[in-house]
Design a protein around this nucleic acid. Structure first.
Lengths: 183, 183
DNA sequence: GTCATATATAGGACAAGTCAAATATAAGCA
DNA sequence: TGCTTATATTTGACTTGTCCTATATATGAC
């Protein structure tokens, strides 16, 4: 149940509409916490109910009124409290590993193909990660806080390290399957 | 939607009841695919409906009748087909990273505490992994197939590598936060 | 003596998130 | 002319999985 707190985190930087929040998610933490648009709006409703945000309705013609959400003092307090609390455990599910676990049922080329596809996805992910610092520079200037930027960079570093480790695993797995064949 | 296929994978080794399947999950792939008991029974019902397994009811006194599930030829075919198919993407969600992303709002000791707790959990996980090979030896003897055992080992290797990478990240993050303080 | 554990299945309630559609209009592009 | 994209929110249906409870009894631990 981290989504409400991610929303509070963004609203703590600046008041925003649900629509703008969706963009904030998509251009920053999407890689480790994708957020569905419908889910954001429902969360906003819940946060309002709890008194952690307030809504400022800005009338518009042609379009639905903008509902700009502002974090309250109670919301800020709740955010800080939550941030200092131990993280929820990760979902350990790795769909590929089910296939690998039962891959003894598969001819070696098919097992290798599975791993090659996976490795290709990981390489693509690394390239995506490599392009992030440029985009992030824009936000870094806007926020003017090296401390914030430091922690943002940590999350990217996590993604790079884990992806590299997975890639190395896949590459060695492929080599080992080939060795298996030779014997 | 991998659970039905994991169930087929186990039933392909041997016919089993839902209860035995639950134990099979818990003593093997739980680390990358935990399975809820209720979910297993519901999946079994669905697999039966699709004709991928058949039920053999073994009457018992005192206890509910055993319902032993057998994989069918159609089920075996479906399993092989699925195994050769590209893996679903992983859920990228890492709850800790939301806290880290917004940790600029937190005093450094609290950010470090967060990472220490995380690192401790990772170390405990590595110890659990270290104990797996002994338990696995029992299954390896039972199945008498070095090829199957090779793929089982691959899944463990994945867990170890990824956990180590996460741990290295956390340890370096802690060092970097301490450096931040000194400046 | 009581409590946990093992055997064995089933169903209801609920949480989180996904997907798609509805509503309304302007701007830019081919 | 028509298609896509941007702006902005809401709702409904659905999926996957979790948690808890119910039912029944035997055995071993403390």
């Amino acid at each position: 149940m981290s989504l409400p707190y991610a929303v509070l985190g963004f609203l703590n930087y600046a008041p925003m509409t649900g629509y703008e929040l969706k963009k904030a998610f998509d251009t920053s933490i999407r890689h480790f916490w994708p957020a569905d648009q419908a889910q954001i709006y429902r969360t906003l409703k819940e946060l309002t109910r709890r008194g952690w945000v307030t809504v400022e309705v800005v009338p518009q013609e042609d379009r639905p009124n903008r509902k700009v959400y502002h974090i309250t003092d109670a919301g800020r307090e709740e955010l800080r409290r939550w941030l200092g609390t131990p993280a929820d455990p990760e979902d350990p599910r790795v769909p590929l590993l089910i296939r690998i676990f039962f891959a003894g049922q598969l001819p070696s080329e098919k097992a290798i193909a599975l791993l090659e596809t996976y490795a290709a996805a990981l390489r693509a992910r690394l390239e995506t990660y490599a392009r992030i610092p440029q985009r992030a520079a824009h936000y870094a200037e806007a926020i003017q806080s090296p401390r914030e930027v430091f922690f943002w960079a940590l999350t990217l570093d996590y993604g790079i390290r884990l992806t590299r480790a997975a890639l190395e695993w896949a590459e060695e797995a492929i080599r080992n399957i080939r060795n298996l064949e030779k014997q």
